[in-house]
Amino acid sequence: MKFTLGIAMSPLDQLTALAKTAEECGFSSIALPDSLFFMETAAEKYPYTPDGSRMWNQDTPWVDPLIAATAMAAVTSDIEFYTNVLKLGSRNPLLLARQVGSVANLTGNRFGFGVGIGWAPEEFEWCGAPYERRGARVDEMIEVIKLVLDGGMVEFHGEFFDFDKLQMSPAPSKKVPFYVGGHTDPALRRAARVGDGWCSAMMKFADLVETKKKLDDLRAEYGRADEPFEMQAVCIDKFGKAGNEELAAAGITDVITVPWLFDGIPFDGDLAAKQDSLRKFAAENIA
C-alpha cells in the first residue's frame, strides 16, 4: 500500500518545501485539490460534509493543481502527483489536454489525472459551461482528453464537442493514468468503465469496503476485472499502523493522509511543525 500526502488548504509558499520533505520521507505521491473560487452564496450544499457546509472560506488559499504539480516536480525527482480531483465540468477538454500533456512532460511522467464533475452550479455557469447534462458532457470530455493525449493527428465528432484533425505535440511519452472521483452510482460506473483507479473523498471504513465491492463488480461487468486499478482513499475512522493494515487487507492501494492534522496543527500551521509531522508519520507507518 502507498501513502499520499494531501496538501489542501496549505499556504502556497509551503508547497515546494512540503513536497521535498514528503519525498524524503517516502511518500509515493501528493494529492492536489481543485477549487476555482469561493462563491459568497452557494446554490447547492457541499456533498462531502454531514451538514453540507464548506470546509473553507473566501480567504482559504488554493492554487491551480496543474501549476502546483509542475512547481513541486521542479524541486523533486521521484515523488508523483495527481489531482484529487480536478473538476472537469466547468472546463474545455482541448485546453485541458494541452495542460495535462504539458504537466506530464514537464514532470517526467510523474502525473496522474484525477477527475470529477464538480458540485457547484456557479462553477459551471460563471465559466460558460452548462450545468445540465453535466455527467454526459464529462464522459465525452474524458474521451476527448484521452484521445488527444495518445498523440498523433486526431479528430472528434461528438454530441458536445466537435473538431476536425489536430495534433498536440509532444504527446506524453507514457500514458497518463486517469483516476475518477465521486461516490454516486454514475461516478462508480464511470471509474469502472474508463478509470485506472478511483478517488474517494472522506469516507468511513465500512463504506470504503462496500464501495470496493461495487467497483469490483462493475469492473467485471465491463470486462476489466484483471486490469490494474488504484483505490485511493481518505478514511476517517482507521488510523495508525493497525488501521493502515486493515485498509490494505480491504484492498485499498493508496491512503491519502494529512499527518499534521493528527498532531493538532491546522491547515495554515507552521511549516517546520508540518515537516516534523511528516517525519513522525513516516517513521511510524511508511518505514
Results as ranks from 00 to 15, higher is better:
residue 91 R to V: 07
residue 121 P to H: 15
residue 146 K to L: 04
residue 251 G to D: 03
residue 258 V to K: 11
residue 73 A to C: 11
residue 197 G to I: 06
residue 273 A to P: 03
residue 122 E to I: 06
residue 133 R to G: 06
residue 250 A to C: 12
residue 55 M to S: 12
residue 66 L to R: 03
residue 121 P to L: 14
residue 79 I to N: 06
residue 93 P to I: 06
residue 256 I to P: 07
residue 11 P to W: 07
residue 173 S to G: 14
residue 279 R to Y: 07
residue 177 P to C: 04
residue 172 P to R: 12
residue 60 T to V: 11
residue 89 G to L: 07
residue 29 S to I: 10
residue 250 A to N: 01
residue 58 Q to S: 15
residue 177 P to S: 01
residue 235 C to A: 08
residue 53 S to P: 02
residue 166 L to S: 06
residue 171 A to Q: 06
residue 63 V to G: 15
residue 170 P to G: 04
residue 106 L to I: 15
residue 286 I to S: 00
residue 245 E to V: 11
residue 259 P to Y: 05
residue 120 A to F: 07
residue 16 T to Q: 15
residue 242 A to H: 11
residue 246 E to G: 01
residue 155 E to C: 08
residue 154 V to D: 06
residue 282 A to G: 02
residue 96 L to M: 14
residue 8 A to E: 14
residue 120 A to P: 02
residue 196 D to Q: 08
residue 220 A to M: 12
residue 47 P to W: 13
residue 99 Q to K: 08
residue 242 A to R: 09
residue 64 D to V: 10
residue 87 K to E: 15
residue 209 V to E: 10
residue 22 A to R: 02
residue 203 M to W: 03
residue 281 F to G: 05
residue 16 T to L: 14
residue 212 K to P: 00
residue 113 F to Y: 11
residue 285 N to Q: 08
residue 96 L to D: 07
residue 278 L to W: 00
residue 192 A to F: 04
residue 7 I to H: 05
residue 145 I to M: 05
residue 60 T to M: 10
residue 116 G to L: 10
residue 196 D to M: 10
residue 65 P to F: 12
residue 141 M to W: 09
residue 71 A to V: 01
residue 125 E to Q: 15
residue 167 Q to A: 10
residue 151 G to C: 07
residue 249 A to H: 08
residue 72 M to N: 09
residue 180 V to G: 00
residue 254 D to Q: 11
residue 250 A to L: 05
residue 111 F to E: 00
residue 278 L to P: 00
residue 187 A to E: 00
residue 138 V to R: 04
residue 231 M to K: 05
residue 46 Y to I: 13
